[in-house]
Amino acid sequence: MTRPVVVLIGPPGAGKTTVGRLVAAELGMPFTDTDELIETEQQMSISDIFVERGEAHFRQLEADAVARAVTTGGVVAVGGGAPMTPATAELLESMPVVFLSVTIADAAGRVGFSSARPLLSVNPRATWTRLMGDRRPTYERLATWVVETDGRSAEEVVGDVVAEVRGS
């Protein structure tokens, strides 16, 4: 089994997809975003999957997508809730993981808490804060490295992630 060089975790708005694409380009490796993988395979948006099939169905699709993605090598970004699934968390424990940490102020500016983020569609700021409170201990436990993203450009964050991966 090929292992990823790095798996990016963090809440909505942390920059997992943007940073992941740039890290993969910098390292000359493939990039896999598990949310994009799910949307392509299901031919529907994550939001529509939540509405039409429910969160439990989405979480199963997500766990399957993560399990497949981490066998392809390269750089992998997983959905914000993926590490909360016990099987996914167990899988990530043996991987090189970067937790992209972000505060609500920066996250809100990046994602705008749109309806494309189903768990944030009702009272997005309060929901994000609650989700982050629930998820942060898991993110921190799984993290090989924590990279702060607040007030920083994607390029600055990428520099830190690449430095960690390369051990410099």
Rank of each mutant, 00 (worst) to 15 (best):
E90T: 13
D106P: 07
V122E: 14
S94I: 07
G112A: 02
P118T: 07
N123T: 11
V98N: 05
A105M: 13
A107K: 00
T138P: 03
L91Y: 10
A87Y: 12
S114H: 11
L91N: 04
A116F: 08
A87V: 12
Y139A: 05
R125S: 13
N123Y: 06
M95Q: 15
S94E: 14
M132R: 14
M132A: 11
A107E: 00
R125C: 13
F113W: 10
A89D: 12
G112S: 04
R125K: 15
I104F: 01
V102K: 01
V98R: 07
R135D: 05
T127R: 14
P137W: 05
R135Y: 10
T103Y: 06
A89G: 14
S101T: 15
I104D: 09
L120K: 01
A108M: 06
A126Q: 12
I104P: 07
D106H: 12
A87K: 13
A87C: 11
G109V: 04
L91R: 15
P86F: 03
P124H: 03
D106K: 10
Y139G: 02
T129E: 12
A107I: 00
A126S: 15
L119N: 04
N123L: 05
P86H: 07
A89C: 12
A126W: 04
R130M: 13
W128M: 02
T88Q: 10
G109S: 09
G133K: 06
V97D: 06
V111N: 02
G133T: 09
L119Y: 04
A87L: 15
M95H: 13
L131R: 05
P137T: 05
A126P: 00
D134C: 10
T127N: 03
A105Q: 14
S115K: 14
P118M: 10
R117G: 00
T103K: 08
L120S: 02
A108G: 10
G109A: 09
M132E: 06
N123W: 05
R125P: 04
T88D: 06
V98F: 03
A105F: 09
F99T: 02
V97P: 06
I104N: 11
R110Y: 00
A116R: 15
R125T: 14
L92E: 07
V122Q: 14
S114W: 01
L120Y: 01
P96N: 08
A107D: 01
M132H: 11
R125G: 11
F99C: 11
V122I: 11
F113P: 00
P124E: 03
P118F: 06
L91F: 11
S101W: 06
A105C: 08
T103S: 15
N123E: 11
T127Q: 12
P124F: 00
F113H: 02
L92P: 06
M95E: 13
E93T: 15
V111H: 00
V102A: 09
D106Q: 14
S114G: 13
T88N: 08
A116Q: 12
V98P: 05
M132Q: 13
A105G: 13
S121E: 15
L120F: 02
L100M: 04
V111S: 01
L92S: 03
Y139F: 12
G112N: 04
S121L: 09
V111D: 00
V98A: 09
V102E: 02
S115W: 10
R125Q: 15
N123H: 09
S115N: 13
A116G: 12
F99Y: 14
S114Y: 00
L131D: 02
A89L: 07
G133W: 04
